[in-house]
Simulated scan of single mutants.
Amino acid sequence: MAHHPIRGFALAAIFSSLIAAPAFGQSLDLSKSTIVDLTHPFDSKTIYWPTSPSGFELKSLHNGLTERGYFYAANSFCSPEHGGTHLDAPLHFARGHWTNAEIPVDRFVGPAFVIDVSAKAAADPDYLLTPEDIAEWEDAHGRIPQGAIVLLRTGWSARWSDRKAYLGDDAPGDATHLHFPGYGAQAAALLVVDRRAKLIGIDTASVDHGPSQDFLVHRIVAGADAAGLENLDNLDKLPATGAIVFALPMKISGGTGGPARIVAVVAR
């Protein structure tokens, strides 16, 4: 089909208007925005839960010249669902709830509301977000709306290169002596049940704090058909409000979670 310059211009104008259209009370103008990567790379050093039987594995299938003389490279990879920067689907802790592939795609995109407890977590590595923390944040920034993506900044992503510092323990196969901050159960219920947040995320290995053995926060979030984002990076580069997050996991049929490339759009 021949290219029609007027039609192409019209389509470009329509697309531009959609991109700049208000959504969630915000405008998304990419020409005046910074894209922040909230994702740790996947490689041999990626952190997985201590009881995971394996980590991220990358195998080269071909890397070099082909018989016809051109360069070609391809790999295969293998990874547990839960490790590195990833999403927890509701099915992870709630029987019969959404799998990765069943989560409506519009739930992966939305306004970010960043709660910073890094100072409190520095003083207490097992710190739990409280309803009082949320009330204090809302006093300063306004009520968290329905459909929010709430991100908890603890400062733990700075420890990513040191497994023991990040998890609080590095005993192989043992998850009973971990230490890192997380959401408290009451705070999680306030966010996903009362405020009806669709995603909650954190820059640690779990939305439950390290010492948890009952994973109550996971159960509360999954039971509300919300989802969790874990092992986030660069939350210090996001404002308390105003960013828009795109958190797209692999679309795994029957999946309980999966690796995700998560980015935020922040107005300059």
Score class of each variant (00 low, 15 high):
residue 213 Q to E: 06
residue 219 R to G: 01
residue 197 A to H: 01
residue 205 A to T: 05
residue 209 H to A: 15
residue 197 A to R: 08
residue 223 G to N: 15
residue 235 L to I: 11
residue 200 I to L: 12
residue 217 V to I: 03
residue 217 V to R: 04
residue 219 R to S: 02
residue 227 A to F: 14
residue 214 D to V: 01
residue 198 K to W: 12
residue 204 T to S: 08
residue 215 F to A: 10
residue 204 T to E: 02
residue 202 I to L: 07
residue 209 H to Y: 12
residue 234 N to Y: 09
residue 218 H to P: 10
residue 219 R to A: 09
residue 228 G to K: 07
residue 205 A to G: 15
residue 227 A to D: 05
residue 203 D to R: 08
residue 207 V to N: 07
residue 230 E to Y: 07
residue 208 D to S: 03
residue 227 A to M: 13
residue 196 R to D: 10
residue 230 E to I: 02
residue 228 G to Y: 05
residue 218 H to D: 15
residue 229 L to Y: 09
residue 234 N to S: 15
residue 227 A to N: 04
residue 206 S to V: 05
residue 199 L to G: 10
residue 200 I to A: 10
residue 212 S to F: 00
residue 206 S to D: 15
residue 223 G to K: 09
residue 200 I to M: 07
residue 222 A to D: 04
residue 218 H to K: 11
residue 200 I to K: 09
residue 200 I to C: 06
residue 231 N to K: 06
residue 223 G to S: 15
residue 213 Q to W: 00
residue 217 V to M: 04
residue 218 H to L: 06
residue 234 N to F: 10
residue 232 L to W: 13
residue 206 S to W: 07
residue 228 G to L: 04
residue 202 I to A: 03
residue 230 E to P: 00
residue 206 S to E: 00
residue 227 A to I: 00
residue 210 G to C: 13
residue 212 S to C: 11
residue 234 N to W: 12
residue 215 F to K: 11
residue 210 G to F: 04
residue 198 K to R: 13
residue 231 N to G: 04
